[in-house]
Design a binder for these strands. Structure first.
Lengths: 222, 222
DNA sequence: GATTACACGTGATGC
DNA sequence: TGCATCACGTGTAAT
């Protein structure tokens, strides 16, 4: 229950308006040791401090409004819960961002042609597959994701038994083939297009999947 | 209610440890109007207040540590920047969550065009598409040439009569279809792969061909 | 009564 | 010089 502070009569919890007129009379005669201050200055000081406090209180209220599930409206509780909330938000954000990286943003990966769109992955460009050994053999993988379906395009050299091998590898990666097309192109090229259902436990990046497929395809050539 | 304050010694900004030992002696003799308090109680009160303040200050520090790019360590600034930061985190989270929902559940994820503003209804059919989404409509063309064959890949929105229109356009561009595959992908995406023989008089660039195909496809939506 | 929390006035300090 | 910020002690409610 996030309730705003109830208006008090005697002592407002969060004073919306300052009293402004407080007829306080300083004890002007007791200048004990140090000449303290000019009365006008003292009043200015008081007012400034009031303003500062009110600003802080308003910020507290504003912060409390952003934190869901606040039980106590304590300053300490507001701060503490806000701290935990920020931590939680950060955590969720990093998780989601990581997940998003895996599926969406760079879900088009073309092997053997890294210079397709100039879109360079700065963070996880670690596994640069040794394209040297297979630079002569054509093998490109491209994938797109829509919902729980994946569209997989493989453009490669025609090899005997390649399709079965690829389909087996796909299935062992928790991708279940729903539709496929194999088009011969030229003399020695196959253009394979596959629509597959992504299993619940599928969690590979496109790059990882492409690597697996390529490795599977390379085993035939040995 | 002019409170007499005792002079303090140090003034730590964020006191890490409380002084604990302040030998303050109240003016016990002046019970002006109200018998104020027992001295021991007063000391307890002071200590409790100190503890509370320190707790708050520590929370301020902890909160400030979570907010990146903090310039001022003001209490007001910490609160204000924390508020803005929480808002920003929330915003980014909702955006990412929405995006994730769209990717996992249904709808279309347009690759290579991450900035989709069109919020399309997932359940409804694709017969009512306003002009805004038309211009952003997914339509990607990719072509490869091997000898006198062309491999043509078209990734686009599913439209009634689209395939015939495309094939007609292809043929009118001196490309003669030898093989074709049309795979539905998701609810409203078609992935078309075509192998065509390039006629003798074919002399278009890929870009021109893609443009012709796109224009032909757009005519259906009118 | 004891504990907790708050706003207030105030002196000190740094810019 | 002010001006802003701070921690402090204190009175006062509410729990």
């Amino acid at each position: 229950m996030v309730s705003v502070s109830v208006p008090q009569k005697g002592k407002p919890r969060f004073p919306t308006q300052t009293p402004k007129g407080s007829p306080k009379y300083q004890n002007f005669e007791t200048k004990t040791s140090h000449a303290k201050r000019s009365p006008a200055h003292a009043q200015d000081h008081i007012m400034a401090e009031r303003k500062r406090r009110e600003k802080l209180s308003q910020s507290f209220i504003a912060l409390a409004a952003l934190v869901p599930g606040l039980k106590k409206m304590d300053k300490a509780s507001v701060l503490g819960d806000a701290i935990e909330y920020v931590k939680e938000l950060k955590e969720r954000l990093t998780v989601l961002e990581e997940q998003s990286k895996k599926t969406r943003a760079e879900s088009i990966v073309v092997l053997n042609k890294p210079d397709l769109s100039g879109d360079n992955d700065s963070s996880s460009c670690d596994e640069s597959i040794d394209a040297d050994s297979v630079s002569d053999s054509l093998f490109e993988v491209e994938s797109r994701v829509s919902g729980k379906e994946m569209l997989l395009k493989i453009h490669c050299q025609k090899q005997r038994g390649l399709l079965v091998k690829l389909l087996a590898e796909i299935q062992s990666n928790h991708l279940f083939v729903a539709n496929s097309s194999v088009l011969p192109f030229g003399n020695s090229i196959l253009d394979i297009t596959i629509v597959a259902q992504m299993g619940e436990s599928y969690n590979l990046t496109t790059k990882e999947l492409a690597k697996n497929l390529r490795v599977a395809a390379l085993k035939i050539l040995s």
